[in-house]
Design a protein around this nucleic acid. Structure first.
Lengths: 113, 113
DNA sequence: CCTTTTTATCGTATATTTGCGATATACAAC
DNA sequence: GTTGTATATCGCAAATATACGATAAAAAGG
């Protein structure tokens, strides 16, 4: 039981779901905002900007990294994070495309919900 | 510990994160596709269209309902689901707006990630 | 009323996420 | 080398998500 069946679905849907998951916590959205505003910043600045412990921020950054939405650059003992703009744009385009296709197929035989 | 801190963040970010969470599983994306194609259909049709047990599909539908992305209409013993298009459009617009603002703030002082 | 059909919910098992403190690691400065 | 700073990772606890089978509930048909 509790087998993860995600991989049996359409790879494109899997990719979009990874993007969705990255956006599924407001802390990660807040991180993206700070990174955009400042054009990237070090982990410590993010910790100061968020109401979360350093280890928790680091974990959210890891998730954003795994979804390819941010990049990290080591500067001595510091980690400078910035937004991976090409990847973000690609993901947003994928999302838009998904919903565009959804609307194009929009069948008028909707139930009377 | 393990206290959920989501509610301390920007309400707009919270709303977007709820949308993200709804999209965070490919099964739910597949459900949305089927609903769009057919203009809504009953739970049983979705179960046939997906490689998941009936109870699991029902659970995913519940999540989509809780994110307001689908509506349900009871037709005798059947439940007819359809996409809540106004809510979907609102959520997609919110998502677009988020990334538009992100790009507008795009500070050129990016780290050399 | 009983049966069938359909769907939601319950119970359960497991996996993942969220959050923190503590610790390890990596580098800079001295 | 030692100290200090910055960050990642570990370990833990609690919450949430994923998946299924079993059961309950609701309506239609006999």
């Amino acid at each position: 039981m509790a087998v993860n069946k995600k991989q049996v679905f359409d790879p494109q849907d899997q990719a979009l779901s990874i993007f969705g998951k990255a956006l599924a916590h407001p802390a990660r959205l807040a991180i993206l905002k700070v990174l955009a505003e400042r054009g990237g910043c070090i982990c410590g600045e993010l910790v100061d900007a968020l109401p979360l412990a350093q280890s928790t921020v680091s974990q959210h950054l890891k998730e954003l990294r795994e979804a390819s939405l941010v990049l990290v650059n080591l500067e001595g003992p510091r980690s400078c994070y910035c937004i991976n703009w090409p990847a973000v744009e690609k993901a947003v385009d994928g999302m838009k495309e998904f919903f565009k296709q959804l609307e194009e197929q929009k069948n008028p035989n909707a139930c009377k919900g």
